[in-house]
Design a protein around this nucleic acid. Structure first.
Lengths: 166, 166
DNA sequence: CCAATGTCAGCATAACTGACATCA
DNA sequence: CTGATGTCAGTTGTGCTGACATTG
């Protein structure tokens, strides 16, 4: 993630790797194992955004457009993505008279999500066995507090870099 | 990341969100801000794998095939990806008689990577201002120790879940 | 000769935009 | 009527596989 090893000044000490790269690597550590084990268990292989649908659906369900918004993709893309998952019996689209059609988890989708949840808990235990429960707690401690919105605007305070793109 | 909120038993307590989902969310927090600020600074918008090229290139450079291997993509895909970045003056392909052609950072690529690095350091400071330096240190502490290879095989020990994909 | 490498060409996926119908 | 929504159609991105030339 844009972290070229071009700082020969410091030799791989702490702070050498940007936090962002380390976070991404850690997320992939979990994701690769999860995907592999789900497929091994006979579950369909889902794309990145298909998997994220599970994360953005609550018990009430949501409209297709709402899912698209939460995934950060176009309404039209969500349409094909969601209907693929309906074909797989993971989702269902129920029409309620009061709030219009809503996307909800189908029974099989509920089972798959439960299986994924169990595997993730298992992976967390395996990680704790490798690096220590205290370090995993340190991760949770930092990740469970709200970070606030992604800071889009360049921080007005510390213009650490000119950023002239020459 | 496959973490449906379908566990009404516990009400959003700690442990409710799988670590994997939180890690991914955190990585995106950084990545979105980084990309936005780089583009605002006039740098070209890079794809995910293009950005990762910076992370896998060391000072010696690497062959195209080696880059492909490190990115986990096909040699042929790396070819187009790398040559696009050569067009952008971010990379150069130098032919050395001894070790064959090698992909290295061009001067502009070096400047872009340095700008990205500065922005990431800045973001880490902003995060520390929001959630506390101690929590950020907790993140680093857990992420900087080696986690070992992604556990591919289902853990032989704790068969927590039948994983029957019905 | 062989293995690794670089390249070209075609294909598949999954996002995108544009256009249009429906409905609260 | 209008805004939000669901759908269809075509385009673009970026990965893939197959095939082939080059090179050490």
């Amino acid at each position: 993630m844009l972290s070229a090893r071009l700082t020969p000044s410091d030799g791989a000490g702490p702070g050498d790797v940007p936090l962002a790269a380390a976070l991404l690597h850690a997320a992939e550590w979990f994701n690769d194992a999860l995907l592999t084990r789900l497929v091994a268990g006979g579950w369909p292989e889902l794309s990145r955004n298909q998997a994220r649908v599970f994360a953005v659906l609550d018990d009430d369900g949501a409209s297709q457009s709402e899912v698209a918004r939460r995934l950060g993709i176009a309404r039209q893309s969500a349409h094909t993505l969601l209907h693929t998952m309906v074909e797989l019996d993971l989702l269902a689209i129920v029409s309620r008279s009061d709030r219009g059609a809503r996307v909800v988890l189908a029974p099989r989708g509920r089972r798959m999500a439960a299986a994924a949840r169990a595997l993730l808990d298992e992976l967390e235990d395996e990680l704790a066995a490798r690096i220590g429960r205290d370090r995993v707690d340190g991760l949770r401690g930092a990740l469970e507090v709200p970070w606030g919105p992604t800071p889009i605007d360049p921080s007005p305070s510390r213009p650490r870099d000119g950023s002239a793109a020459t």
